[in-house]
Amino acid sequence: MKVYVTGDSHTRAYRAALDRAPRENVDCIMLGSGTHTKRVFFKRVGSIVTFSEPSYIEAWNTLSGRDDILPHPGEALGLVMGLHSAPNFRSRDWAKFAPATMPGVSNKAPISAAVQDAIARRGGGYTRQFVEELVTAWRHGGGRDVPPIFILSAPPPYRDHAIIRRAKAPPAVVVEAHRRFNASATQFFTELGVTVIGYPQSVHDDEGFLLPEYREGIDPLDPHHANSRFAGLMLDELERRVAAL
């Protein structure tokens, strides 16, 4: 089965992983900056979904040779978007606020679980609507209940992130912001019938931070990306899931 992997800037690590160790049936391209997902970047007409953002159209066409995005027979789609928690966890809010029941953060303004969930729901721009439209189009076209679409998780925050080092947000609060966001997005996509591929436990430490080896080769000032080693692990899991279809 042919697997197309595409998405926001995290996709760069997947491209690097494939350049280093090509996989026969997997091809990949970065659509462009995730900033474009803050606006509607797609459109659906019946069972056809296409990108409306010019840079995304061009990239997708380069990868697939067509405009429509839904997997054709014999294809699967890996989307590197929708679980990009960084805009959430790196907010300066986390230097001032903390979950109400979290121990050791009594000097922060408490926020309730419901508020945390409302914040988590907010992230991701229009990626949730994009995937929702893909699923709608899939079913509109008479596809099976479960489309061969996989969402690949972005990595967790790293320990030395500026939000902790400079803005002094408590590490546990930052990890919790990431965890809430991921949980919320995962639930949303799963309920749509789309498979979410989370990162393996082996990539993070006991606190939940990305291990340093998955940042090697990345500019220390880069705010949230992992390296091709991380992407390689994600591709391994993607291939396993695709093989099981």
Partner: peptide
């Protein structure tokens, strides 16, 4: 409110 909380949702809380 935390700045991350959408303005439209603030009065709910």
């Amino acid at each position: 409110a935390p700045s991350l909380l959408p303005e439209a949702e603030r009065s709910r809380f």
